[in-house]
Simulated assay, not measured.
Amino acid sequence: MDLHGYETRFDQTTAWDCPLNAEDIAADYGVELAVALRAVDEHTVLPAPPPPVTLLTDGTPLLDRPDFWAAHLGIGHGRRDLIAAACGITPAQARTAYTELLHRPDSWPVITVPLPAGGVIVIAHCLQRLWMLGPDCTWLPDDESWTDFWLAAPTGHGVPLALISGNWRGPGLRWPELRTIARAAAPDRLAVAQRLLLLAPILGAADADDEAADWFAWALALVTNKPAPDTVVRVAADYLASGNEVFRSARWREIDGVWVSDGKFCPRYWAGRQTPSDELRRISDMLCATGC
C-alpha cells in the first residue's frame, strides 16, 4: 500500500516514552506518595500504544459496504440517523461500523483519492488507545479517535487538509474543487461517486447549490445499489450538500488567483495578508486543476 508520504505525519516519539514522576503525581492529585508510586509501577505494565505507522491498513475493500458509507459520511454530522437511512441500514448498524470498521486500536483504514493535477488526498480513520489517571489515581482507558485528510503532493512535502476530531480543522474543499476531483474519474461512474462521498465530510459548502445535492443523491444511490435516488436519499443528499456542520460558517474567497478560507481553524486560512503564502497557492493549485 502506497502511503504517499503520509507516514511522515506521525512523530514516533510519544508522551508514553516520558518517565513519570511520583512526586508530581502526588502533588497534582492530592494523594500520598505511596499511592503515586503505585500508579507509576502500574504504568510500567500497561500496554504501550503501537507506532501509528504500523497500524495503517488498506481500507479500499470497505468501499463495497453500505455500513462503511453510513459511518464515514456520518463523521462530523449531527444527523447520522438520516445518513444511515439513506444507506439502507439502521443507526445502530452505523454506530457499530464506526467502531468496528473505522476506528479500531489495531487497524487504521487508509483510502486515497487521486487528484487531477497529481498527488492524492489520503484519508485515514484512526484510534489510539491511551491511558489516563482517574481522580482516585488509577489508570483508565482513554481512546482518542479522529479522521485525517492529508494532501500529498506529487513532489515535495504533504500538508494537512482537514481533521475531524474533538479538535477539528477545516473545511478542506470548496464545492467546485470537490466536483472537479470526483469527475476526473470519469467514465467510471462508481469511482466518481466514491470520490465524491469520500471527500464529502470536509466540504465547506458556502458556494454549493442545487447541483451539489443532485450529485450527492446520485452518488448515494449508486454506492448503495439503489436503482435511483428515493425520498430518503434526496433528503440526505440535501443535508450533505449543505456541508459539514462544523465547517458551514467558513467562507471562501479568491485572492490573487488563490482560493482561501476565512475559517481560522482551516489549513487554508488566509490571515489577511495582501498576498497569500506560497503554501496556500500550492494547496489551491493542487485542488483546483481544472474547472474551478
Rank of each mutant, 00 (worst) to 15 (best):
V122P: 12
A117M: 14
T290N: 06
L102V: 11
P154R: 11
D41F: 06
Y29T: 00
D2Y: 10
M1H: 06
V246M: 08
W131V: 02
D136V: 11
A84C: 14
M1Y: 02
A70D: 10
H77S: 05
R174M: 13
R104K: 13
R183P: 01
A153I: 10
D67M: 07
A162W: 14
A36S: 09
D285I: 05
D136Y: 04
D214T: 03
A205D: 12
H4C: 04
G5P: 07
C18L: 13
A152H: 12
L3W: 12
A94C: 08
D64N: 09
D207T: 04
L190G: 00
G59K: 02
A48K: 15
R234N: 09
R282N: 07
W270R: 02
E211H: 04
R195N: 14
P91Y: 02
Y29P: 09
I75K: 07
L63I: 01
P50E: 15
A236W: 00
D238C: 00
W16N: 12
W150F: 13
Y239W: 05
R65E: 13
C137D: 06
A186S: 01
R234A: 03
A22H: 03
V192K: 03
D207K: 04
R251F: 09
A162G: 06
P227G: 03
W218L: 04
D28R: 15
G76N: 02
W175Q: 11
I164Q: 11
L196A: 06
V258R: 03
